[in-house]
């Protein structure tokens, strides 16, 4: 009976500690974890197609300090209307044939990626009434020829490189309704930890494409600052929950151990009187208490990880 109690108590305590510890780690820097996981873009740059060629953009990939890049993706801005006639906020639409990429591995949260023109994937921040999977958005209001876009999925870009994604051809079709098209390039640099480093990286791009071609950039530091401000209110609570979980685990394990030692002391006294050497007593005690404890720890680590995965997924969305 004691063996089972030790195993179960240890398992539950370790599982709680793993979940709590994982939450604390995730909550300590949710943006950084998600950014690293998606290989987020240090710099998102918009280029004027009229002033830069794709060859010139390709040349930017080989600049000193560029460790990875993606694009050029055709990009435009538009303000879609849902089936009820409600106008959604202006959103950036980027043409990408897949969610995966060397930079900014967009994570599907539901549905699937676009496969053909007429489909659109929205950022999870646009999920709500009127924009469910299967619903239809019109690219502009009041125009009979406006392309209809069927929502096929919701995705998350930690770098916030776009609000929505469609096939490259679809972006061209939307842009033909009176919106301008730009080229979007995504870069990762070996030095991008400070504002000055990002600025130096941007100046390198300027030197290849010319400043007139570079319409605008967005630094990952700005995106991080916004994300951290958004998470600031919840982080203390998550951290407190994590600390509480670990404290409870320590108390539980301590109680189990002190209980086992209490019972064990009587047993140790008996074994000593019977002629067990100190080493034999340790061996007997280890067999009695450590085997279920180690079993509990192993099961607890497994259970903790299983429980922590969905929680961490949520934390990374912060």
């Amino acid at each position: 009976m004691q063996t089972v109690v030790i195993a179960i108590a240890t398992m539950m305590a370790v599982a709680s500690a793993v979940v709590a510890g994982s939450l604390m780690v995730a909550a300590a820097a949710p943006f950084d974890h998600a950014f690293a996981k998606q290989r987020g873009a240090h710099l998102t740059a918009q280029f004027d197609p009229a002033r830069v060629s794709t060859a010139e953009l390709a040349a930017t990939r080989k600049l000193d300090g560029v460790t990875a890049s993606a694009g050029p993706y055709s990009s435009t801005s538009f303000r879609p209307v849902d089936q009820t006639g409600f106008r959604l906020p202006t959103m950036t639409l980027v043409g990408r044939s897949g969610a995966d990429s060397a930079v900014d591995r967009v994570e599907m949260k539901s549905g699937r990626w676009v496969q053909e023109p007429g489909e659109i994937v929205l950022s999870t921040s646009f999920e709500g009434p009127g924009t469910e999977i299967g619903s239809i958005l019109k690219s502009t209001s009041g125009t009979a020829s406006a392309p209809a876009l069927k929502v096929v999925g919701f995705a998350l870009s930690t770098s916030k490189t776009a609000d929505s994604w469609a096939t490259p051809a679809q972006v061209e079709a939307v842009a033909s309704q009176g919106h301008s098209v730009t080229y979007q390039m995504l870069y990762r640099f070996d030095s991008a930890a400070t504002k000055h480093q990002i600025l130096a990286d941007r100046m390198q791009l300027d030197s290849v494409t010319g400043s007139a071609a570079l319409l605008g950039t967005r630094s990952w530091l700005d995106t991080k600052r916004e994300a951290d401000q958004g998470a600031a209110a919840t982080v203390p609570f998550v951290m407190a929950f994590g600390v509480l979980g670990i404290v409870m685990s320590v108390i539980t394990v301590s109680s189990v151990i002190s209980g086992a030692v209490g019972v064990g002391l009587r047993r140790i006294g008996i074994l000593k009187a019977l002629g067990f050497t100190p080493r034999e007593i340790v061996r007997a005690y280890v067999a009695q208490a450590m085997v279920p404890a180690v079993t509990g720890i192993i099961l607890g680590v497994l259970m903790g990880n299983v429980l922590a995965v969905p929680m961490l997924a949520d934390a990374e969305s912060v």
Binding site: R266, I270, A273, L274, G275, F276, T277, P278, E280
Partner: peptide, 21 residues
């Protein structure tokens, strides 16, 4: 301690008030 334990098991038997089984 080790020699004592070895000696005790060979030469001494103990019976206790509360049996200690």
């Amino acid at each position: 301690q080790h020699a004592l334990a070895t000696f005790r098991r060979a030469h001494i038997g103990m019976a206790f008030q509360f049996f200690n089984l």
